[in-house]
Structures are given as C-alpha cells and as structure tokens.
Design a protein around this nucleic acid. Structure first.
Length: 280
DNA sequence: TTCCAGGTGCATA
DNA sequence: TATGCACATGGA
C-alpha cells in the first residue's frame, strides 16, 4: 500500500509512485491550479484537495478522503505497470520522464464536457473555458465553483455557450446535454469498452478520440488509446518506418502493442512528447 | 499574417 | 468506405 488515510488527510508513503506535477499537467485534467503556498489544488465535481509535499511524503488534504483515494487511483501499483510497459528505449525514456503519473478516475459528466471542449483546442484555452463554465453556472462553494450539474448545464442556451467562447463546440455541448438527460452515467461503467465507446460516439462533438479520452479518464478503460496530434507525432517519430496519418491505423498498432495497458502507455507518451517539444 | 491546438461533422465521390 | 473541408478562438 502506498498510502494511509487519516481524518481529512491522505498520506502518500511512496513518493516515487505519485508526482502531482506529472499527474495534473499531463493533460488528463483541466481543473487544477497552484495556491498562494505554491501547492497544487485540484478540483473534481464539487470537491477539492490540496497537495502538500513534505520531505518523505505527499499529503492530500481534503474532506473527501475516500473519494480522492479512488480519484488518484491509489490502490493500483504503478511499479509493476511501468516494468511491463518499458518495452523499448522510447517507453523507458517516457516512463522515466513522467514518473509518478497516475491515471485519474474523473467524473463522467465533467470529463465528457471537458473533452468536447478539447477538440481542436489547446490545453491552456481548454482550462480557461472549463473554468468559465464553472463560474457561469456551477455552484459557488465559497472559494471556488463546482463543475455544473446536468441540470445547471441545461439552463444554458447555444448563445450562452458561444458568449463564453466555446466557438463551434457550443452546439455540441448544448445537444449532448440534452441527450444525457435521464441517463445514469455511473452505470455505463458496467458496459464493455466497445459498448461504452459506441454510446459515447453517438453524442454530438464526441468522435473516436474524445470517446477514448472519456472511456479512459472517467471509466478507467485501459484498452483505449486516444490518438491526437501529439500521439501521431510520437508514433511517427519512434514507432514506425513509414509515415502514417490515419489515426485509426495508428491506434490499432499501438493497442496491439500495449493491450490492456494501452491507457497508461498513451499518457506517458503524450506527456513525454508534448513537454519535449515545448522545451525545444 | 499564418499556423496550430488532446477533432468532429458533413458533403462528396 | 475514404477524403477534404469548415468550424471559433487566441497564443506563438
């Protein structure tokens, strides 16, 4: 066990398996920030947690300890996963670079809307737009705004969403919110990965890549390998001899390579390539 | 000014 | 089934 829980606090005992910078900045979540003490603060639904580093541990300060144990996937041993993934030099480098990444268990509605916003967008602007959505119709929790409930999202018109800067995604969000009325999003976790992806792709603004992200980050479906512009770059750079632009074919090859660990591999590679190019 | 960003939907062949 | 283009916005 890499953690222990006390009242309002989770202590991470093995710092090598938990790195807040890598976990939060690897592109799987958009609602986090640093507070005045320089500590990461992360928001999920209407909850939040502050992460404090000490010499020998990380401490996750929150009123919702059980929720954040699951949110940070703390019951999974990532050392074994990393050993299995280190099949070549690129993977070894990516794992070393992103050591301490964990795949989060995020809330379905928040993940669906956030990744619809992510289409043809950059991460900084996605963060701005998600935060704007929370401030526009999410519940005021005092020091922050919760992610809106479906009922709160239903109050928004397409023009409201356009005024927030959602652009061409406004009509997708509007339509998807209508389609989700009456759907038990938690129960979708019981579907097979294929059935879940089929359901998600039927939503407006959700194509194969966004569906993979939702299945991975909200439903922990590790057979999914979202292929975006960065994975296309990393694939062509390190994993094939002939340049490939067909993202479906790229996905097939990568899933064949990593199987049930595809989701983990994807996140290490995405973070590695994106940060490397940012530094260049 | 042009290109690009965690793509999708739609028309066309 | 495959391909090409339009779609909002803002930072580099």
């Amino acid at each position: 066990m890499i953690y222990k829980t006390q009242k309002n606090k989770i202590t991470i005992l093995d710092k090598s398996q938990f790195n807040p910078k890598h976990i939060l900045e690897c592109g799987q979540i958009f609602r986090y920030s640093k507070n005045q003490n320089g500590n990461y603060v992360v928001f999920s639904g209407n909850m939040f947690a502050e992460i404090v580093e000490t010499e020998q541990s990380y401490q996750i300060i929150t009123k919702n300890t059980d929720y954040f144990v699951d949110f940070f996937d703390l019951k999974t041993d990532y050392n074994g996963i990393k050993n299995q993934l280190a099949v070549n030099l690129t993977m070894q480098n990516a794992i070393c670079f992103g050591s301490g990444i964990r795949i989060l268990n995020q809330q379905p509605l928040e993940t669906i809307v956030s990744f619809i916003i992510s289409a043809n967008n950059n991460i900084k602007r996605i963060q701005t737009l998600v935060e704007r959505l929370c401030q526009k119709c999410g519940t005021n929790m005092g020091t922050y705004y919760a992610f809106p409930t479906l009922e709160q999202l239903e109050t928004l018109s397409v023009d409201d969403l356009k005024d927030m800067g959602m652009g061409f995604r406004a009509k997708y969000i509007f339509s998807t919110v209508k389609k989700l009325k009456g759907v038990d999003l938690q129960s979708l976790a019981n579907l097979s990965t294929t059935e879940l992806l089929k359901f998600l792709i039927a939503l407006d603004g959700v194509g194969p890549k966004v569906a993979d992200c939702i299945a991975l980050f909200a439903y922990h479906k590790m057979q999914c390998f979202p292929v975006d512009t960065w994975i296309e770059k990393v694939f062509n750079c390190y994993f094939c001899k002939q340049h490939e632009t067909n993202r479906q074919k790229i996905r097939e090859q990568l899933v064949n390579m990593f199987g049930e660990l595809s989701g983990y591999a994807q996140q290490y590679l995405f973070y590695y390539k994106r940060e490397l190019d940012k530094q260049a």
